[in-house]
Design a protein around this nucleic acid. Sequence first.
DNA 1: CCGACTCTACCCAGATTG
DNA 2: GGCGCAATCTGGGTAGAG
Length: 507
Amino acid sequence: MPTILHLDMDAFFAAAEQASKPSLRGKPVIVGGLGPRGVVATASYEARRFGVHSAMPMGQARRLAPNAAYLVPRFTFYRSISEQVMELLGRLSPLVEPLSLDEAFVDLEAGEVADDSASARAAGERLRIQILATTGLTGSVGLAGSKMIAKIASEEAKPDGLVLIEPGTEREFLGPRSVRILPGVGPATGEHLRRAGMTTVSDLAEAGEDELVRLIGRAHGASLYRMAQGYDDRPVVAERDAKSVSVEDTFAVDLHDRVRIRAEVERLADRCVGRLRESGHSGRTIVLKVRRYDFSTLTRSETLRGPTDDPGVVREAAGRLLEAVDTTGGVRLLGVAVSGLADYTQEDLFAQAEAREAEAEAAARAEALAEARGAGAGAEDEERDARGESSGAPGSGAVGGDAGGASGGVSGGFPSLGGAAEEAAGKVEREWMPGHDVRHAEYGPGWVQGSGVGRVTVRFEDPGSAPGRVRTFGVDDPDLIPAEPLPLVGRGPGVAQGTGQGTEEAG
DNA sequence: CCGACTCTACCCAGATTG
DNA sequence: GGCGCAATCTGGGTAGAG
């Protein structure tokens, strides 16, 4: 029987926004980075009809669907919905492997809720109903004997459907399809295979393992050959521990000033260490990533003698790596990562011992050098410190990161997409992000439709109301305050959501 | 002593995924 | 001409230890 279930929520971010904002239902909705360099994260099905899809540059989306609603992602809101969904999956089986906020595998065999195809299908349909009832959103389900087939099946089921592939029928299901549906076959590998005359899955199965290994390498070739035959025994794994932590920003305008670049690298290092510490880790390898004006990307890394979670150490290392990078022409993205993670508490003492040792060695070296050269030693270090400390030269042109308050004609310089956008919003005073929830003393709950030139436009409605109307305020209107997202379901028949304060507003 | 060899660790780019 | 962010994996290259 099919023992693996794959759930994929339909157009998740966009659907969540539509559920939260009645006036957007049935309309094209595009969620993504609104800055000059943003891309589409999710397009609603209405927007997809205009040809808009994820990863598309925002500018292109605006040309295709000028009348769509454009919203920044609200990850904390999506996460709360995701948790409800994952909770439902947990009732099916203890073995649940989340792939992202909107996607997960479930091992039904470990859950004992199904013992044949009919009961598996029933469990899948029951799940879809529960998800709709508790979140107001639809998800699609694939059921099969392996992860790969289950995932392809849920894709087939979209939107709002269920597809079950009977074990034993995998090869006929896969055979005629494009190689691109197989996991690990993206644009590059797909093109590679096409040049070798292989476009369908059955082409791969016929080519044989040796041929594929020769074409795309040892590991890829072998696994692809197995996949092409519908054979995939990867287990559902509940929790895997992180192997690296990274932070990166694309700037609204390319950075040229070395001092500014250096300052940004240090900020990223601090943010990266912050997240590293939150996760209770320390790490040994520091990685600097630079994307230049022409999109050429390079990484430089340095491995320390022991793991660290010291911001100063990571800043120093990242700064050192930067010195070896040519940035003439400008930089569009910077990133800092820490890998080689160790459990902090376990490695702590070792790390400190290592650090002391290294310090002592460096001191000894410096001393020897000083003696050899007389009084001149240490000048280099001083110079580096001076550059590190020098202030960030705020007026130096580009607005990036959280400095993006002064929006000109276009919306300001926030990082184009990602968790950082939300946090940046918190730091900038009275920055009304499109799509975010607000509450007005008189008119009640609503959401920011847009803002600019000292004004903010709010649509007053909530998940359970009819489409509401729009009013405009000054950005500093004291009656208007940011608010938490309201529950999508929880009124009407069914379970009354206990926390339901604030739905009996307006008069 | 030198060269060939294996192992391991590290470095970096590129591809893929959601 | 336009192309985000985070994480993972692989393959090829180099360097040092034995």
